[in-house]
Simulated scan of single mutants.
Amino acid sequence: MTIQGKICLITGATSGIGQVTALELARQGAQLGLIVRNPQKGEATRQEIIRQTGNESIQIFVADMASQAQIRAVAEPIQQAYPHIDILLNNAGFIAGNRRELSADGWEQTFAVNHMGYFTLTQVLFEMLKAAPEARVINVASEAHRFSNQLDFDNLQLQRGYSAMKAYGLSKLHNILFTKSLAKRLEGTNITTNSLHPGVVATGFASTSSGFFKVLAQLARPMMISAQKGAETSLYLATAAEAAQYNGLYFDKKRPRTPSALAQNPEKAEKLWEVSEALSGLKLI
């Protein structure tokens, strides 16, 4: 896919791999829509991308990905700004602290941002994706999905046995299962979807966490890769012509990789989709 002039919408673009991905897409001539939680950080990111690339086709849209109401609301200005969406990059991620906290919708915060944020944003922008000649939905998952060796729908949001690491790993499992179910629904359309592991990236991502997870991140930092390296697979799935042939796969280092057995389970994928529809009240796809 030649990215020049394509409309790319990215969440979590004010730092880390999201920012690097946005910068490179802008450098290649894409029109960028950045969905940000903090408008000041969003505007600073926009100005920095313009400064570095000379590409002024960048717009900011404000929404907290933990809030279903804000995700729904942001769809309107996006629809007014663009005729369609070529690339939707669900990149925003969250790691919680030791205490289990709830979103405005009453959901465990990691689940709310990392799974339901992806699910609902894709749903509310689905018609814009359909309107593109060829569209791609890219979901940033993680090898952390392998932390989860079971998926208990009676304890989906870890009401029992909560830990930050469990919640994060489970949310990344959800990302891969969501991609699997979405891909099935997209067969025969102009849209494909894939998920990816960006690598263990040296960013401030774990700074919001505490306890064991934060210590682990600090110990692992010398072995982490740069945000530039971490963005490579997202960029590959967004821009490579051959990536159009893939649908429903999980990528690592720009190549398909086999996820955990649980992440390949079609029954679990469908059940998660049904639960997500019920929670969101959305059934558009």
Results as ranks from 00 to 15, higher is better:
Met1Cys: 06
Met1Ser: 03
Cys8Ala: 14
Leu9Ile: 15
Ile10Trp: 08
Thr11Tyr: 04
Thr14Met: 07
Gly16Ile: 14
Leu25Glu: 12
Ala26Thr: 11
Ala30Arg: 10
Pro39Gly: 00
Gln40Tyr: 00
Lys41Leu: 14
Ala63Pro: 00
Asp64Arg: 01
Val74Lys: 12
Gln80Asp: 07
Ala81Gln: 12
Leu88Val: 07
Asn91Trp: 09
Ala92Ser: 10
Phe94Leu: 15
Ile95Met: 11
Arg100Gly: 04
Leu102His: 01
Trp107Gly: 04
Met128Phe: 13
Met128Lys: 15
Leu129Ser: 04
Ala131Thr: 09
Glu134Tyr: 00
Val137Arg: 00
Phe147Trp: 15
Asn149Met: 11
Asp154Ala: 15
Asp154Thr: 14
Leu156Tyr: 03
Ser163Asn: 06
Ala164Cys: 03
Ser171Leu: 07
Lys172Val: 12
Lys180Ala: 05
Asn190Phe: 00
Asn190Gln: 02
Ile191His: 11
Ile191Ala: 10
Asn194Thr: 05
His197Cys: 08
Val201Thr: 08
Ala202Pro: 02
Gly204Ser: 13
Phe213Trp: 03
Phe213Ser: 01
Val215Trp: 01
Leu219Pro: 07
Arg221Cys: 01
Met223His: 09
Met223Thr: 11
Met224Tyr: 10
Gln228Cys: 01
Ala231Leu: 07
Ala240Ser: 09
Ala241Gly: 00
Gln245Asn: 11
Gln245Arg: 15
Tyr250Asn: 08
Lys254Gly: 03
Arg255Met: 07
Leu262Trp: 13
Leu262Ile: 12
Ala263Gln: 08
Pro266Trp: 11
Glu270Met: 12
Glu270Trp: 10
Leu272Ser: 10
Ser276Arg: 11
Ser280Pro: 11
Gly281His: 14
Lys283Ser: 13
